[in-house]
Design a protein around this nucleic acid. Structure first.
Lengths: 336, 336
DNA sequence: CTTGACTCCCAAAACGTTTTGGAGAATTCT
DNA sequence: AGAATTCTCCAAAACGTTTTGGGAGTCAAG
């Protein structure tokens, strides 16, 4: 309600002293400190955020860009993640603002607005591309940031990512171990790092096993994209007997394609992300997920450490992928 | 990059003139205005947000509180809604910050922090209770706000809500029209306005039809809550033949209960929210949804008008409910 | 030639805080 | 007792804007 000046006046003290008392400096006597604290409490005093931000040259804000573009926003966990992140940041005095990207505007544009207007102390980036201009921009400006997903940037930056390569390698090998030989891959847009690396994992498994890695179709990272990509693979002369899909959303689209195709119910399938929806599809969707508790808190922690100036190389987390087994990955196969 | 002083210096003008030129005031000549604009553009000048906020006594921020407590956050549309809202707000120069409520802290506490620290110009509240202390607090402070959901507050406030009463009335009557007489209701916690009003809609339909409105069970607004509530109803001596559920999440829990109970597959069921997941349950879930496009933009618009000082009574939107028919609301009934 | 209106510009104040660089009083040390 | 040190406190500067209240000039009208 009140401001520092009024509070000081009512106490017969200077603004300086009141300010320092509230901040717990030792150059104000314990007695006055207590007196000031009580008065502040009673008056419901809270320092004016804008004033402090101006003076301290910190925005006390972190922005996260929300791509509104094609394949929707990430998993539904996403909001939980943001919420956890915001909560963790809040305990360090930072707030999280969400920065959706309007149609027709680029993500860099948004970054520029936030950074050059000194509206944020750091940024959180999601859905990284292999070559990501947002990353390049922020690096050029020297603004702390953390990405959800790696990039191919030569200069290291903080990130949290799942080990998609290992995950898709393992998933493919698991199919191989149960006798599958024609294992297809439904790939996401290869400019995204996650999509690319998952494809590489699948391919490595095929190569290592001496199998042809030709059953690959790329599509938009959506249900429809997965549907179309699956149809394309199913029209090939020699069909896959199993499908490893870049995302659950695409896997669900692929399931739709399988349902429409004769014999599709003999094809095994696995996705990635562990969407809650996967438990309700029929067959229920076997999938993979990044390990790790409370991802949001991890992001927040990295952000804080990045702001504190820790070197990027120490702020990189690569999480293992674990399987979530339901029904779709072991459908009864008819020996053709 | 630069600030006003540097820009002014490099142009041989005063700070005042540069500032006014950029703001398009007419008391600076067209020539200088253009000259200033070019220089600012070239220097990539953006006014320092904190400084402007301090001077203009506006935070240029709106906060939305995210309840982390029991029944999860609202529908998955929620993030889309936030995104739309943030985008719309951004075009008016406002940013949206998300304010999760840490465990052990009350939502009012959070509101207080944001409001008294002058961190926001307005607030967006979700999941209103019939008697909502957040609403009371904000009203007492005179801070503009909009709620997602009504309250029983005596002094009107801006809101957007679905007409749950009419929706649940209609849904119940539809069951009645197809011959159902024992229609049950799975209710959410009655302190929430939406839960209460939906229950009232169901009850009114039963009363109007001269039917006993006794098949009602209340639970947490979660899958598990719906599951338990449904089990309770199914154990009654005379079972319901149809269930009207307060939310899709609860309806999905109820479906699980039905699956476990002998004869449960003859009970019709309908939910509310139109969760995407509903299309994948078996049977697929018939449901209801609030009509209206781009809810986020509507919230943003109300917020802006509230900030501009429009009276609350003109900032209330009650949206009709529409049916989303899938399979679960017309399951083959066995005449007992 | 004076007056008034108009155009273009600017110095200074203000927003509310934090931080700097002491000042005066009390205490301890020599 | 005088000098050095420690305790408390404070005035003033600074953060970067926007806004207020004019101040020179110029031009046309009286």
């Amino acid at each position: 309600m009140a401001n520092l000046k009024q509070l000081a006046q009512s106490l017969g003290l200077s603004i300086t002293t009141v300010s320092r008392a509230l901040d717990g400096y030792s150059d104000v006597s314990a007695a006055t400190r207590e007196r000031v604290r009580e008065a502040a409490e009673k008056a419901g005093y809270r320092p004016n955020a804008s004033a402090r931000r101006l003076r301290k040259q910190r925005a006390e804000l972190v922005a996260v860009t929300l791509p509104s573009d094609p394949g929707h926003i990430g998993p539904p966990h996403f909001l939980d993640m943001l919420s956890g992140c915001a909560e963790h940041l809040a305990s360090a005095g930072l707030n999280l603002v969400i920065a959706p990207v309007p149609r027709g505007e680029s993500e860099v544009e948004i970054c520029r607005r936030f950074v050059d207007g000194r509206r944020v102390d750091a940024m959180l980036l999601v859905r990284t591309k292999r070559r990501d201009e947002r990353v390049e921009f922020l690096q050029s400006r020297g603004i702390p940031f953390v990405t959800n997903g790696r990039t191919e940037s030569l200069v290291p930056h903080p990130y949290i990512d799942g080990d998609g390569f290992a995950g898709f390698l393992a998933a493919t090998q698991r199919f191989q171990a149960t006798g599958h030989r024609r294992i297809g891959h439904i790939a996401g847009p290869q400019e995204y790092y996650f999509a690319h690396v998952r494809r590489m994992g699948w391919q490595a498994a095929m190569d290592d096993a001496g199998l042809e890695a030709d059953l690959c179709a790329e599509g938009a990272p959506t249900e429809q994209g997965g549907y179309l990509a699956a149809l394309e693979l199913l029209r090939r002369p020699s069909r896959p007997t199993a499908l490893v899909c870049a995302t659950d959303e695409m896997a669900i689209g692929a399931l739709r394609a399988l349902r429409e195709i004769d014999g599709g119910d003999h094809i095994s399938i696995v996705g990635h992300d562990d969407l809650p929806i996967g438990a309700y599809t029929s067959p229920s969707l076997s999938t993979m997920r990044m390990t790790g508790e409370n991802l949001g808190a991890s992001f927040a922690s990295l952000l804080l450490r990045a702001i504190a100036g820790e070197p990027a190389a120490e702020l990189q987390e690569l999480h293992a992928i674990e399987f979530v087994d339901r029904d779709s990955h072991r459908r009864p196969r008819v020996t053709a």
